[in-house]
């Protein structure tokens, strides 16, 4: 028992929670934006992989870290545009298109990576984002290191949660976004084109997914290797259901999830006799559990996965 207490009382663990949560926060917000306008985006896993690769490659090629994040976001938006064009005006199966985007984006990133770094036994590294101490606040005991000595993209992710929550519920654009996912016909009747709005929101959401991936290679680690996203994208899709499509609950879900992940990582090192694979399974099993708990209670956008064609029902 005292071992558990030691882990829970350690600053290092709580510091890790926000770091682990950041890509999940960004990715979950991305999925949320797409699904709020009524489109499932299973491209996330591949878009995150591509963002991780291109963000890293930009910095490796001499760009600065923020340029890396920006390039990853732009690349994400481009994949988002592709997904949007296929699923919104053409109305193709959102499941299959999304998986296609994932397979394409992931294999394309490995291809580009191998072209850029042809022979490397150990993956080359970059100088990642350094923790940024917020003046005064970072001197607080416990809370200081846990909350106020994170890397800059983590702060950005937290600001984005607030911004998206505010935008979604307090602005006309947010109302239109929500309507596009609930009742696009009514939106059209109001003179807003649901098709354009959906395309825009999917691009914005996919840009966040690209950034989520880039965080992995420019802040959490300092190099890129294939399969590094490890299902985080799928976990984000599950977290959106858990969050009932609300940004503030998405933050909560990501933090909760990151807490369990940080906890199991530390538990692995102190508990003997339990195979490490069982610990590694936990994040995936927890996501499934979250889905089971929330599936019936979650308020699904009514037009989710329904293509919109003017004059058709």
């Amino acid at each position: 028992m005292s071992v558990l207490f030691d882990i829970l009382a350690s600053v290092g663990m709580w510091e890790a929670v926000l770091r682990i949560a950041t890509p999940l926060i960004l990715g979950t917000l991305g999925v949320l934006l797409c699904e709020r306008v009524g489109v499932l985006n299973l491209g996330i896993e591949g878009i995150m992989t591509f963002g991780a690769m291109i963000g890293w490659l930009t910095v490796y090629g001499g760009g600065d870290l923020w340029t890396g994040l920006l390039v990853a976001a732009a690349a994400g938006a481009m994949f988002g545009l592709l997904h949007a064009l296929l699923t919104v005006p053409l109305g193709l199966s959102q499941h299959v298109t999304g998986l296609g985007i994932t397979l394409f984006a992931a294999s394309f990133s490995y291809y580009v990576f191998r072209l850029a770094v042809p022979t490397a036994s150990s993956p080359p590294t970059i100088e990642p984002f350094r923790p940024l101490a917020v003046p005064f606040l970072s001197d607080l005991p416990f809370l200081g290191p846990v909350l106020f000595t994170q890397t800059a993209p983590t702060y950005l992710a937290l600001v984005l949660v607030a911004a998206i929550a505010w935008g979604l519920y307090r602005t006309p654009l947010g109302l239109a976004v929500r309507m596009a996912g609930e009742n696009p016909h009514a939106l059209d009747a109001q003179g807003v084109d649901p098709i354009l709005l959906r395309i825009g929101a999917i691009m914005a959401g996919s840009a966040l997914m690209g950034m989520a991936g880039a965080f992995l290679t420019t802040a959490a680690f300092n190099s890129f290797f294939p399969t590094m996203v490890q299902g985080r994208g799928w976990i984000c899709v599950a977290l959106v259901v858990f969050a009932s499509w609300r940004p503030e609950r998405a933050l909560l879900g990501a933090l909760l999830f990151a807490f369990f992940d940080a906890f199991q990582l530390r538990l692995q090192t102190v508990v003997d006799g339990v195979p490490y694979q069982l610990f590694l399974m936990l994040p995936y099993l927890l996501s499934i559990l979250a889905l089971v708990l929330m599936a019936r209670r979650a308020r699904v956008p009514q037009a989710l996965m329904q293509p919109y064609r003017r004059g058709e029902r």
Partner: peptide, 23 residues
């Protein structure tokens, strides 16, 4: 039973299955 969409659960179980094999 619970109305859980199978897309995400089958995807997540892929990772669980490979870890189980590893175990």
């Amino acid at each position: 039973k619970f109305g859980v969409d199978e897309v995400v659960t089958t995807l997540l179980l892929n990772f669980v299955a490979v870890l189980f094999v590893s175990l």
